[in-house]
Design a binder for these strands. Structure first.
Lengths: 144, 144
DNA sequence: TCAATTTCGGATAAAAAGGTCTTTATATCT
DNA sequence: AGATATAAAGACCTTTTTATCCGAAATTGA
């Protein structure tokens, strides 16, 4: 469904979001430890997220990553997926055809419309504040 | 969503299914031409499908691949996906956690339940006869 | 026997995932 | 203000996985 980069990207963003609720900034090391991901690889993904304007980064002592508290409810999970994996999971053909639309559909095209819609709706309506709340309450976890 | 192998596997099986309706057997070359896939790679995928009992193969002159007409309505798309990609798309954690269940869910676990169910239902209820019919009628295509 | 066709083992290529080291920015401490 | 330590950014390299290709062996109808 998602690439490894994207999985790490989502988990990293959620961890940053959770800490940002209390105005805490977290370092790369803290992040990869919290989400159990390779440090250097995570760094690269955070660069993408930073350039996409999803997270803010600060260099130097006490530096790290954070997200302005006021933006938490305005950022949704789809934005993260699109920033890292592009929109192929939302729009690409399930059978890999370069052309696949209503006029010339692959055998799965019609059957996947509602699945796609639901995936889209689910990720669009999940904003960082909501999802971080569940983490706060211990209802969900970022690593085993 | 699916690996390239799986995409080719589905398309190949559908093409074989379509021809098998009229008791036609098709060769590897015909298949990869019809679905626009690399010949040698397609051969390997057909071996998997053959071993999984989804398609039948015949060596020698006039050999090739086919599916017993009477089984067309009994084989569904999920079987193909599972044979090639395994069941990770149906059961694996969306964020890649090795442990992710109702008791200890990742932040996406609950949100993906219905998407998973729908994917499962869609692929399980799509049998080869149904899908091949749409191809016959020209309602869908296997290549652009 | 011969030609057609799948099977099978491995080789190669490309892409994704992960790692190392150097550079750059910046707080903090003399 | 300058030196220093800290932490991200960036360039490059290695490993692993996925995708693709090749050639020889096995099977079988004619």
């Amino acid at each position: 469904m998602f690439s490894k980069s994207c999985e790490y990207g989502i988990k990293a963003t959620l961890f940053i979001a959770q800490k940002s609720q209390w105005d805490e900034r977290v370092s790369l090391k803290e992040i990869s430890s919290a989400i159990d991901s390779p440090v250097a690889f995570t760094a690269k993904i955070l660069q993408i997220l930073s350039k996409a304007g999803i997270v803010d980064s600060t260099k130097g002592p006490n530096g790290g990553f954070d997200i302005d508290k006021s933006r938490l409810s305005k950022i949704n999970l789809k934005q993260i997926v699109v920033a890292i994996d592009g929109n192929s999971v939302f729009e690409g053909c399930a059978l890999g055809l370069s052309v696949c639309n209503e006029n010339e559909p692959c055998p799965l095209h019609g059957k996947f419309v509602s699945i796609r819609n639901q995936l889209n709706e689910t990720l669009t309506s999940s904003n960082l504040l909501n999802v971080a709340m569940d983490l706060n309450l211990g209802l969900t976890v970022l690593k085993h």
